[in-house]
Nucleic acid binder design. Sequence first.
DNA 1: GTCTATACTCTGATAGAC
DNA 2: GTCTATCAGAGTATAGAC
Lengths: 205, 205
Amino acid sequence: MSKTAPRTRIQRQNRETILEAALGVFSAQGFRGATLDQIAAAAGLSKPNVLYYFASKEAIHHALLSGLLDNWLAPLRALDPAGEPLAEILAYVRRKVEISRDFPRESRLFANEILQGAPRMMAAIEGELKALVDEKAAVIRSWSAAGQIAAVDPYHLIFSIWALTQHYADFDVQVRAVLGPGHDPFAEAGSFIEGVFTKLLAPDP
Amino acid sequence: MSKTAPRTRIQRQNRETILEAALGVFSAQGFRGATLDQIAAAAGLSKPNVLYYFASKEAIHHALLSGLLDNWLAPLRALDPAGEPLAEILAYVRRKVEISRDFPRESRLFANEILQGAPRMMAAIEGELKALVDEKAAVIRSWSAAGQIAAVDPYHLIFSIWALTQHYADFDVQVRAVLGPGHDPFAEAGSFIEGVFTKLLAPDP
DNA sequence: GTCTATACTCTGATAGAC
DNA sequence: GTCTATCAGAGTATAGAC
């Protein structure tokens, strides 16, 4: 009965098809730049049919963003306070690189939203996202205090991991244009970025 | 006579007023999201009057992007092959942090453009920007080869400088939301990022 | 459930008076 | 140079047949 939990398989599948198509369009054009025509064409459906499954263009966008945040925060959530500090952070970096490589459209959807002032995500950022960062920043700070990693600001450490990993998804066309052909940007980025944090976090003598 | 070099002072000033207003609107909404109404309102002019000074919305956007690239590349252009390697790179980092702090709207305008596949900037990126990066990457590579700085991939070094510095302008609302009040993001970012590259580039033993 | 046709709004751009 | 009025096209959303 509910709009968010359709009963039949066809309904679920059509919703999925539309969301998949909309992800491509929204991430490439932004919310205002995307049109229902483009989304419908990409989904292989008519425009009214798209609006049969979602009440509005806004509703499609909202559904995408809602589903995104959990997946987006999962790598940080997996940072284990009981693990070996440097290994935990490097594993987090590795997961973020993989996410940028495997889900670049999601990264750009997110980037578009934040860039424009997060009009539809502010609550989630100030709530769920900030809470998780606060929690993990405290863990990292305790590792620094115990001398297990270098003394660095944990918030800016997290920001820098986001910045470096997401850059390769968000600015993909620039990276590829500058590197030229014959490169695997994400593979190169992975080892480069791990090197950055390995040196940064080596315990102070 | 030329459209790009108006004669009177009033003409120059109105063009400037429009560009200033348009920078705010385009950087916050993207090209498609921005409307001439918003730009005209922000400039304190009527919509037809805006179109008296610029042939089209596209023309305003183009004028902004054209003026942007040179300023954007200036910090890298100033990297001196004859200087002291580590100091040169750290000075470059510092200039980029200052540009992000002082020109965040320009950074977001650029980010919007790249994020959406650089439809209006591809030529400049493949041309002028790539040429400059190639040139400076060669300089950095020679410093590494001479053992004056650590052996790092110069292209990804430059990407990482861009990523870290621009993140604070482009994702400003997220950074401030996570840090909470009582912070000066750009000041903190400046020292954090310099620390990152100081450790990364310390010559290999 | 899906389509064709269409209503209605927003927006870029132009005409023409002043 | 600047304005009011307006057009033409694009785009969201709905009506109603099938």
